[in-house]
Design a protein around this nucleic acid. Sequence first.
DNA 1: GACATCCTTCCCGAACACGTAATATCCGTG
DNA 2: CACGGATATTACGTGTTCGGGAAGGATGTC
Lengths: 271, 271
Amino acid sequence: MFGKDVLPGSGALPAARPRTYAGSVNNTQPAPDATEHRRILLVEDEPTIAGVVRDYLVQAGFQVVIATDGFTALRLAAVRRPDLVLLDRMLPGLDGVEVCRRLRAAHSVPVIMLTALGTEDDRILGLEAGADDYVTKPFSPRELVLRVRSVLRRSVPEFSPEPSVEVGGFDLSPAARTVSRHGRPLALTAREFDLLAFMLRRPRQVFSREELMKAVWGWDYGDLSTVTVHVRRLREKIEDDPTRPSVLKTVWGVGYRLDPSDQEESAGADL
Amino acid sequence: MFGKDVLPGSGALPAARPRTYAGSVNNTQPAPDATEHRRILLVEDEPTIAGVVRDYLVQAGFQVVIATDGFTALRLAAVRRPDLVLLDRMLPGLDGVEVCRRLRAAHSVPVIMLTALGTEDDRILGLEAGADDYVTKPFSPRELVLRVRSVLRRSVPEFSPEPSVEVGGFDLSPAARTVSRHGRPLALTAREFDLLAFMLRRPRQVFSREELMKAVWGWDYGDLSTVTVHVRRLREKIEDDPTRPSVLKTVWGVGYRLDPSDQEESAGADL
DNA sequence: GACATCCTTCCCGAACACGTAATATCCGTG
DNA sequence: CACGGATATTACGTGTTCGGGAAGGATGTC
């Protein structure tokens, strides 16, 4: 189930999304899909599974925060305000069902339970605790993404604005088109904003100039130095030392990658 | 020569135009009815829950004021005159039931009680205190919004005027079609008023000229410079330095955004 | 019917962002 | 160490976007 159709390396963009991230003005109306870019809290103590699931969700365009135990999960839920929680049934310390119950009490956030056991008892226990859906391992990541989308569609108000992105000290709000870094607002141009937004949503992932051109500009051809120059201008505004980038790094011969300086990000785990 | 508009003692505002009130047109919410834009006082001492519920209500088009204890609640109720009160049963200091009783005594405002306990006793106690409805935690925010709408529909007279909007030093009353800023009345024309009303209800969100044209003017086509000109005239009246706007900002290549100078906002809580 | 107010459209200048090209620098490799 | 390709840096021309001014039209008032 896992391992096979996992990360497509660096080759392909999340092609599932034809929509460009570009200018937004020339594009017709916003939010074709309200479930896009939503925040997901993944509670899973097994690092391998957590990693794969996270990659898949990120690939699908979600923001993912990981917690490895129940208490961390509750704390992260309070801080990051996820739009959905993926909750492993078996957890060290606080049990999954209990976490679910508390989550629903405190935040009324939709929950999808994950479990290795497919017994009827568990299913009932989970749903009674207030889970919105139930997925048994082993599951295909593809199916999981579908379920997530489905639950989100039911739970997210139709025209709610896209959630903001908080990564590596950045706080980017698509609705307001503002970004701040460590609290200080940044004055970015439209292209710079779109470029940064794209990269912030996919941290730690390399993108070639072609891919960026396609994703941010919406062009299939064109002078790639355009990307280079914009990266350069963006660095000028977000890097402490633009000459020696610490955030928006160059991957020689390949492209660019955004590396969030993960000092903040909660304990237990991070993005 | 646009310079001087005489401040009206009262009357100089343009009379309400017979055409439909474009200011209430919105591209983000369903079904305009009498319950729209109503003021809700949320009394809840747990900040996390308060935050989530507030977000949901705002999303649904309500104005939300938060109080974290019973006394603050009573004071805010007297000052802000909410159309409905969401009241946590468990409160530090003054108990929820007692708050409810005093609220009903002082103002005839509908109350929905929130409680963690679903016991019959509580329900009865709450309803006896005069609550109009009763929601037990954990509750789904969607359900809560439905209940709020339902109670409001019963309590708000059908053609009662829309509640006023108080944001960033502005106080806008749709019914009277008056606006004041920091207490000083503003003399706006009809279009200016509609434009400001729209923006005030959606602070910190960028709108393109097309969107504004659609929302405020109700046109699908048309010369977008119309919007530009009205924005300029509006700035002339609401900005301290119209040349360098601090409230109604232009987002280059995208549109305009209203940024309330958030210093005021009621005590005991925030927006 | 004269007048005033407001709305819309148009024009022009300035500011701005963008793409491109030209040059310098860096990097891995032979 | 030298070479070639990739990336960084800088500069410049151009098209777009915005704001100010003003004219013409519509509407309501006296």
